[in-house]
């Protein structure tokens, strides 16, 4: 399997604090890889480092065969690596439709943008109903869907979702995960950061458990679901 993303021995420091201490992971073409771990394990730091938001101290990040260590966020977007940040970060004073248009900012072909916006509306009909509404008036789950929809308009080859289930009702989480599955079925590779291991492992093909900035377990989603360490720490008995 060819790798879409390959992270090798990644070290990231926040001042004197070592957030990542030699983390390595790969995302294969068409895979949905889940990154599990507790608060402070380094999940978000990993995606932030990949998307160029935080600086990498050492280690390499390779995407689509190119070295993208410490590349700028806009260059990564151009390559098709789209990051849906933690906490959704939608534009609350702009309408749903405008929010989706932002996703296409880096795309110069406007007919492609409109085509993708249409696709997003059919994938997420609730957004279509609310397209003239301000983003801030949506519910938390709808906002998350908007954030994902916005990323889809950018035409991702690799989509990185940072805790899409955060603060959502279980029903909503299930819907979001359905969307993630739909996205994977369209052939997009997904890197899914989650604390909610149960629902993440339901859609993921493979997973990593990270703790204190290093990978402690790497296995297929099926194996992780039955791994006693994962069951005890994240799934409950």
């Amino acid at each position: 399997m060819s790798f879409v993303l390959e992270v090798r021995d990644l070290v990231v420091n926040y001042g004197k604090v070592e957030a990542l201490r030699g983390l390595s992971l790969t995302v294969g073409d068409g895979e949905t890889v889940s990154l599990l771990g507790n608060n402070g394990a380094g999940k978000s730091t990993t995606v932030d480092a990949i998307s160029g938001v935080v600086r990498v101290t050492s280690g390499t990040i390779t995407a689509f065969g190119k070295d993208v260590t410490n590349a700028k966020p806009w260059d990564l977007v151009e390559m098709g690596i789209i990051h849906v940040p933690e906490g959704r970060r939608i534009f609350s004073r702009l309408t749903v439709h405008e929010n989706l248009q932002i996703g296409g900012y880096a795309v110069t072909d406007s007919s492609a943008i409109n085509q993708r916006i249409k696709q997003v509306y059919s994938l997420l009909p609730r957004l279509a109903e609310r397209r003239a509404q301000q983003g801030g008036t949506l519910s938390g789950g709808e906002q998350q869907m908007l954030a994902i929809g916005r990323a889809m308009v950018a035409g991702p080859k690799l989509l990185m979702l940072d805790e899409p289930s955060m603060g959502l009702a279980p029903l909503m989480v299930a819907q979001i995960m359905d969307v993630v599955r739909d996205i994977r079925e369209q052939g997009t590779s997904v890197l899914l950061i989650e604390q909610n291991a149960r629902s993440a492992l339901r859609v993921a093909t493979r997973g990593y458990v990270i703790d204190s900035g290093v990978v402690t377990i790497e296995a297929s989603a099926e194996q992780l679901r039955s791994d006693p360490r994962v069951v005890e720490a994240y799934l409950g008995k």
Partner: peptide, 23 residues
């Protein structure tokens, strides 16, 4: 225009604008 929209995105949320590929 396109630049004007980018200005508004930056005004509303600079980080999110950057994540969407705006320089």
């Amino acid at each position: 225009g396109r630049l004007g929209r980018a200005w508004r995105f930056v005004r509303e949320d600079e980080d999110a604008a950057e994540a969407m590929g705006i320089h």
